[in-house]
Computed example of a mutant assay.
Amino acid sequence: MEASGGGGTLSEVYQSAKKLLLRTRDGLERLERLEHSTSAGMNTELSFSIKKDITQIQSLCVEMDRLWRSIAARSQRDIWKRKVEQIAEEAESLRQSLDKYNLRNQKRMMEAKERAELLGRANGASAHVLRIFDEEAQALQSVRNSSRELESANALGEAILSSIHGQRERLKSAQRKALDVLNTVGISNYVLRLIERRHRVDQWIKYAGMLLTVVFLFFFVLWRH
């Protein structure tokens, strides 16, 4: 039987992660094609969207990691473990590619800004160029801040899921111990009942022996007289 959680079955979560991977790859390819275009604002927005998708994929990987561990059949667990690891590796590779793109973009913008500043032009065109670079630098900083917030939220989600998983394992362990104690108590009660029954039988044997002894002595005395 397939494991399921609050976000759906393992297969459903896996399919969602696969769809996000496809969308993220397409978005990253489009971003790299537009890398040297003048639509920097659109590139920044696309970069942020890709980062959100990657963070969501990583969250789904945490959920899938929890789900495949609860599958009873070992062969199925091994299959799903490999699938989840593959998704996680692809997401990490996309994240690294996005980070490299952002670093290149930031370096290119800083170099262009430095060139504009070195020209030292006082006309409006130069001031306009500097303002554009300042705005783009602020936008990139905003993307980085948002990315850090997403990563923090993802880490918090992973910690919560890990805590829930640990609590569930402790509850299972406590339940097993309780069942062992109950089984032990049941066996002890059975043994005590056997001992009590044997004790009663011994008492009856003792009393019967005493009665037979008295009867024997009584008839023996009568026979002597």
Rank of each mutant, 00 (worst) to 15 (best):
T38Y: 05
E92A: 14
R144A: 06
H199N: 10
E111G: 04
S59Y: 02
R74P: 05
L46F: 03
N123D: 15
S16P: 00
G7W: 06
R33G: 03
E135Q: 13
Q167Y: 11
G8V: 01
S163Q: 11
Q141F: 07
S37Q: 03
H36R: 14
R121L: 11
A153S: 12
Q167E: 14
I164Y: 09
E2G: 03
G5I: 01
V185D: 09
I71S: 01
I205M: 10
G7A: 11
G157L: 08
R108V: 05
I50Y: 01
W80V: 00
D180F: 04
G124H: 10
M1F: 07
A208H: 08
L22K: 13
G124V: 07
T55N: 15
L182Q: 12
L211V: 11
I79S: 10
F219Y: 15
V62N: 05
M42Q: 14
T9I: 05
T38G: 11
Q203I: 09
G8H: 01
G41F: 05
G6K: 12
R95T: 02
M210Q: 10
R193T: 06
A125K: 09
S146V: 03
T55V: 11
L34H: 09
S97Y: 01
H199W: 07
A125F: 12
R82F: 04
T9N: 05
E151V: 04
A153G: 06
G124N: 12
L31N: 00
K18C: 08
E169L: 14
I132K: 08
A17K: 01
S97T: 09
T55R: 06
L140Y: 02
K52A: 11
S152K: 14
L67I: 04
G41D: 09
A127Q: 15
L21E: 03
R200I: 06
V201C: 04
I132Q: 14
